[in-house]
Amino acid sequence: MSLMLVFEQILNGIQFGVMLFLMAAGLTLVFGVMGLINLAHGSLYMIGAFAAAAVANATGSFLLALAASLGVAAAAGALVEFLVIRRLYNRDHLDQVLATFALILIFSEGTRWLFGSFPLYLDIPDYLKGAVILPGGLQYPLYRLTIILIGLLVAIALYLLIAKTKIGVRIRAGENDREMIAALGVDISKLYTAVFAIGAALAGLAGALVGAVQSVQVGMGEPVLILAFVVIVIGGIGSIKGAFIGALLVGLTEKLGSILLLALLSSFLEPAQAKSIAMMFSSMLIYILMAVVLVVKPSGLYGRRV
């Protein structure tokens, strides 16, 4: 195992992590403010990717495609919040899980009906193709570096939004005491719609960014959704900081875990045997990490005691 490989996998892990953060930020905000588990968050990711692919095919512009992913996902989010989600805020988690599971079925089959079963492709624009040489001589794809940069910028912007702006104050107030903030004259239902739309837009952006690396297809949202849940549960539900740390932890575990496990096992097993065992357990590592965190800290790393 070369040091270069480890370095590359660390970068891959960070790239995967910031992507998960874009998904997890919306989920954790919605849970923190409205107390809602939204399984349909993965559908918004898918909608963002499809919107980006459709716009890119029509106009050829990657920037327009990204803008479309943000706009369409935010609009879909606001619409769903208005029609369905707001009826679920006062329900128990069981009803929320089921209703948003139903939304997944509707969104997935609806998208399949509109776009067909074949995957769409979204191309990386020419100016982001190719590799850059990093200090130390590692060649790394420019596009992946761009994703890391966008993810970090979004994280900073989100921090500023929540910590410094008026809407941020309201969001934090809504987390603490929703009756009080409503009594102070803030239109709570508009605030909820806004929070949901922000989360949806971030999910849509993540879908579009990943869609350019993988194919854009129905069902692409669910695996990411489950990982995003793992992230917010590890970080503590409702905590943006927790979501960021959790996302990086999960991203690094996913990309580094298998090679570290292989190296560890190779030290005392035959290569072939070590490889097959490492293969078997590396896909489980993230879930083992989550179970361990929850057993030790039942409400996540930065969660409030529930």
Partner: peptide
């Protein structure tokens, strides 16, 4: 050891563990 949403999610995590295994 957990409750509420965390219980839902930890059971989901065990499900995924077995699935990938």
């Amino acid at each position: 050891r957990t409750s509420g949403v965390y219980f839902i999610m930890i059971t989901l995590a065990f499900g995924q563990m077995f699935y990938y295994f």
